[in-house]
Amino acid sequence: MEEKKSDFFKTFDNLIGHLENIGVGITFAGIVILVTVCVFYRYVLKSGFMWSAEVQEVLVVAMAMFGCAKATREGGHTELTALTKLFPRTGRVAIRTITSILTVIFLAVFVWTSYKYTISSGMLKTIMLKIPYKYFYMWLPIGMALNLYEFIKRIPDRIKNDPPEEY
């Protein structure tokens, strides 16, 4: 039973990992291609896509949000550990617990408020392609929800293993 549960979690976690990878990889590749093609069109063909900036915007927002979650998964976010290291073990555990909770609070509030922000964007549309802004904004709650998941997953490790020597 126990093993089954962890098997299920592993599969789920792998799935999330793949999702983040696909999100980062496709959007990033898309931006590079789009910007390159735009330069080619403007310089060689003397014409431009007026819509490119809008597409570029949605791609970069999605890329940054997925990238942010992926960075959490890999422990790639910047955090300072010099001060915490000076405390005795109980102090360190207490500090790591409190800071973990505070981070979770921030992420949870952000997921909730950016979700509200997305659904309340209503009639707001981009000028060129008339894409509703909710398709731009929705990457904030999606990315941050993934980020929250990744962060919660790391909390036990964050507390137990103290501040790691180098992150």
Partner: peptide, 19 residues
């Protein structure tokens, strides 16, 4: 693919601080 992912995670971390 792997290089895109590596750069994407690094960029996500930095862009998020600025944002």
């Amino acid at each position: 693919w792997g290089m895109l992912l590596e750069a994407g995670a690094q960029s996500g971390a930095i862009l998020m601080i600025i944002a």
